[in-house]
């Protein structure tokens, strides 16, 4: 019961932070929406009609989320995350994904994918050489021949 109550409080506090983030996002989106030129489409519902509908809706609901979060008190500090190292690796993994996307076409499927796979295995703490070197090569080549040879799908 105590753990449940603590989780609930943590969730509520996170809700407040999320609500503030959403409001900032709405402000940004609203600014971008003012840049959409009005056009004569023959109806009052122009190209910015649905965006405004969504933005106002999100802002109102974010306010509701904030109020819901504020109603819970007091707020004990959440425990230091057991996954701090995990978040670091996750961030690195996200960077790896962006780098993989950037090199996929420029460098080509085979080299970029093999490098991504090996780095990925190392980030996942795989230290057996057979696993982090040979498995990637086998999987990447298998996918390559499956897609290009059997399914006739172009890969760079």
């Amino acid at each position: 019961m105590v753990a449940e109550a603590r989780d609930d409080v943590i969730r509520r506090k996170t809700d407040c932070q999320l609500a503030l983030f959403l409001m900032l996002f709405c402000a940004f989106a609203a600014w971008r929406t003012t840049l959409i030129p009005a056009s004569g489409t023959g109806t009052r519902a122009g190209p910015d009609f649905f965006p405004w509908l969504a933005i106002i809706g999100i802002a109102v609901l974010a306010l509701a989320l904030l109020l819901r979060g504020l109603r819970t008190s007091p707020r004990p500090k959440p425990e230091a995350g057991a996954g701090r190292i995990g978040y670091g690796v996750l961030s690195l993994f996200a960077v790896l994904m962006v780098a993989y996307a950037a090199t996929f076409e420029r460098v080509g499927y085979l080299p970029s994918t093999i490098v991504m796979y090996v780095i990925g295995m190392l980030l996942l703490k795989e230290r057996r050489v057979v696993h982090f070197l040979l498995v990637p090569v086998a999987v990447v080549l298998g996918v390559y021949f499956g897609f290009t040879g059997l399914l006739d799908v172009y890969l760079p």
Binding site: G120, M121, V139, V140
Partner: peptide, 8 residues
């Protein structure tokens, strides 16, 4: 292996 294969 599976997780990274899914990425591919």
């Amino acid at each position: 292996i599976l997780t990274l294969a899914i990425v591919v």
